[in-house]
Design a protein around this nucleic acid. Structure first.
Length: 400
RNA sequence: GUGAGAUUAGCUCAGCUGGUUAGAGCACUGGUUUGUGGUGCCGGGGGUCGCGGGUUCGAAUCCCGUAUCUCACCCCA
């Protein structure tokens, strides 16, 4: 038997109804906040991800579905959504058009990882990206929107937020940090590697010994430039006023290289080790990095499988018709009647001749609201007998 | 990439230290005396016990390998 590849799942009812339900909700909210749908290809030039996500990230380092196609192009199945949207933004010259552009997207992402709870090789994200706004208000706007999406479904979560600094304050801080790290002994292998590739990420290390060593380290928050500092405080102030609770997490460092300034994550205790249900942040320099005009931008992505694990599907109600025949002669007239009914309702039909009881059972099983039947009596009078299974009412209507 | 646990009917799982035709519940399906469901009663189908080797008179059961799943590390949504 041929099976689906490791870490890749089929989606069947009733699970996928939850998926559609969630997507519908996200789409509605996103549109309400002024976002428009964008779809970009799953396959992209490998260079796109190397440049945007960053060579130092695990994603690019070891998790990409990368291969050479028949035209000898080095291509890659997208491991995340932002890179493609930014590429499209630049390619379609929206950076030159100026103004504000807000997009949302959803679809499959691919990372070659060992699967576990909340982690698949093919998984789905719903994401949104906003281009052209430098104001911190858009950061809050994005967080508000994300919160609005999550709040529909009674989920337990915590919003973690941090500022990563910008082109002005980040590089000097980085140097300061590396100088400090050089004085330390006993850092774990990962941290030693991080020191060379992306030193900020040592703060994200889960090794307790490393965390102890890092206590006297210079902190990002104490080294922000004036504009980053004031933006960050303004964001927190506004969040307070909006009654959006958050936790400032100075160790929150996003795994993708392109983030700057605001970074945030929605985590939940109901998810196991992979506790991030959504994450995002500002990436003001990425557009320029990918060859566009400097354009401030911010976005987020939700892990759909992860959130689906926490939400309930809406309850299914009885609806539609089930048609059944009580005698051979009724089958074809019934077939015709059933199809007429499809003009306005969901209709299924039992093809076999069965007792009334059996048809009622079948209708009940299909969760139909009405059971419509034709037998000898109905044929004689050219009528259809109908029982409303929900309200336990019976009636007939004339065949026309 | 590393580690631990699992794999028996469509689903959830029993099957003791190896011993005849491998079980249960749920689900599915048929009937319940001839036109009334979801909740009664009776019956039925369905398993090369993940796959491949080995030990043995005999393996679902013990050993080795392999695949997949699950959980964790790493990292992320």
């Amino acid at each position: 038997m041929i099976k689906a590849l490791r870490g890749m799942k089929d989606t069947l009812p009733p699970q996928n109804e939850k998926y559609l339900y969630f997507l519908e909700h996200c789409t509605q909210i996103a549109k309400r906040y002024g976002f428009e749908f964008i779809e970009t290809p799953i396959l992209e030039d490998t260079g796109l991800f190397k440049r945007s996500v960053g060579e130092s990230s695990d994603i690019v380092g070891k998790e990409m579905y990368q291969f050479v196609d028949k035209g000898e192009n080095d291509v890659c199945m997208r491991p995340e959504g932002t890179a493609g949207v930014v590429r499209s933004f630049v390619e379609n010259k929206l950076d030159r058009a100026g103004g504000i552009h807000r997009f949302f997207y959803h679809g499959p992402m691919f990372r070659y990882e060992r699967p576990q709870k909340g982690r698949l090789r093919q998984f789905h994200q719903f994401g949104a990206e906003s281009f052209g706004i430098e104001s911190y208000l858009e950061d809050v706007n994005i967080i508000m929107m994300l919160k609005k999406i999550l709040d529909k479904f009674e989920i337990n979560y915590t919003l973690k937020i941090n500022s990563l600094g910008c082109a002005t304050c980040m590089p000097p801080f980085r140097e300061k940090l590396v100088t400090f790290l050089d004085t330390l002994e006993g850092l774990c292998d990962d941290c030693i590697r991080r020191k060379a590739t992306n030193p900020i990420r040592v703060f994200d290390c889960k090794n307790e010994h490393c965390q102890t060593l890092l206590i006297p380290a210079p902190r990002l928050n104490d080294n922000l430039c004036e504009s980053c500092e004031s933006d960050f405080t303004n964001i927190l102030k506004l969040l307070d006023k909006l009654n959006i609770s958050y936790e400032v997490d100075p160790n929150l460092v996003r795994g993708l290289d392109y983030y700057s300034k605001t970074a945030f994550e929605f985590v939940s205790n109901d998810l196991g080790a992979q506790n991030a249900v959504a994450g995002g942040g500002r990436y003001d320099r990425l557009v320029e990095f990918l060859g566009g005009r400097p354009t401030p931008a911010i976005g987020f992505a939700i892990g759909i499988e992860r959130i689906l694990e926490m939400i309930e599907a809406p309850q299914k109600e009885r609806h539609g018709y089930y048609f059944g025949a009580l005698c051979d002669e009724a089958i074809q007239p019934l077939f015709i009647e059933a199809d007429k009914k499809r003009a306005t309702n969901k209709v299924t039909m039992g093809y076999g001749v069965k007792s009334l009881k059996a048809h009622l059972k079948a209708a009940d099983k299909m969760n139909a609201q009405f059971c419509a039947v034709i037998g000898e009596d109905e044929l004689k009078n050219a009528i259809v007998w109908v029982k409303d299974l929900q309200h336990k009412r019976e009636e007939t209507y004339t065949i026309e």
